[in-house]
């Protein structure tokens, strides 16, 4: 569903992403890990068509900047940015009308209810806390029922209820056949559900790890630290 081939992104002389190859199939949860500055957000923004790049990125076989690809894509950005003069309800209405959605109201209500935003429907974007903005951002991304969902640090700023709900939503989306690419620093939050993990270091994918690749007793965290800091034997 999400296919990245030989993708590179440069900012002047700085190579943020260097020849990245990545794919996420239907019903698959791919996790993107890496230290700060590894190039995860750049990769995610490129997949969502917010940055120019070299290489090929397709969503369900369509170039990522085509209208067809955009119709299939949902994006939760790293920093939630809402329209300060629109209410929470109007944010959903805006997305619904811009995406030409039909019968979206009930779905919108259900999403707001899951994130305990029912009573905030008439609140303006500027009146919300950072965490609530993040919840609205997630609702906006999921309202069009995308087939490919990309989330950049989606759990940051959420309260425990929000974290629990989002984790449940991620699992449900995966089970319903949606392709998910989630970038996070909270490895334990995806430990239960991940299918494949891409560990990025200095703009490159240093390791692709499938769940089946794990040895007995080995956790995703162990794999991550082995790649980013060397194996335990190597560490001082």
């Amino acid at each position: 569903m999400i296919d990245v081939q030989n993708m590179s992104k440069k900012y002047g002389k700085l190579v943020a992403n260097d020849n990245i190859n990545l794919s996420v199939g239907r019903g698959e949860l791919a996790v993107l890990l890496g230290p700060n500055g590894a190039g995860k957000s750049t990769l995610i923004k490129s997949i969502c068509g917010l940055l120019r790049f070299q290489g090929t990125i397709t969503i369900n076989g369509q170039e990522n900047n085509t209208v067809e690809a955009k119709r299939l894509l949902g994006y939760v950005p790293e920093f939630p940015v809402l329209y300060p003069m629109l209410t929470v309800g109007e944010h959903l209405e805006f997305i619904a009308k811009a995406y030409r959605l039909e019968d979206w109201e009930e779905r919108g209500e259900a999403l707001l209810h899951r994130f305990e935003l029912d009573d905030k429907k008439m609140k303006l974007g500027k009146e919300l806390s950072k965490g609530m903005q993040q919840k609205v951002s997630v609702c906006c991304a999921l309202l069009p029922q995308p087939k490919a969902v990309i989330m950049d640090e989606p759990l940051v700023g959420l309260d425990p209820h929000g974290i629990r709900e989002l984790k449940a939503i991620i699992a449900q989306l995966r089970d319903s056949g949606c392709a998910l690419l989630v970038s996070t620093h909270m490895i334990e939050s995806v430990e239960e559900d991940w299918d494949v993990t891409y560990i990025m270091v200095k703009g490159r994918i240093a390791r692709v790890c499938h769940r089946t690749d794990l040895e007995v007793g080995q956790s995703l965290e162990d794999v991550y630290f082995n790649i980013t800091e060397g194996s335990q034997e190597d560490r001082p």
């Binding site: 329209y83 629109l86 109007e90 805006f94 009308k97 008439m122």
Partner: peptide
Amino acid sequence: TGIKGLGPSTIFYKHLRE
């Protein structure tokens, strides 16, 4: 409250509301 329009025209009606 509410936003009119359909497709890209929603952006214009959103601007009016704002």
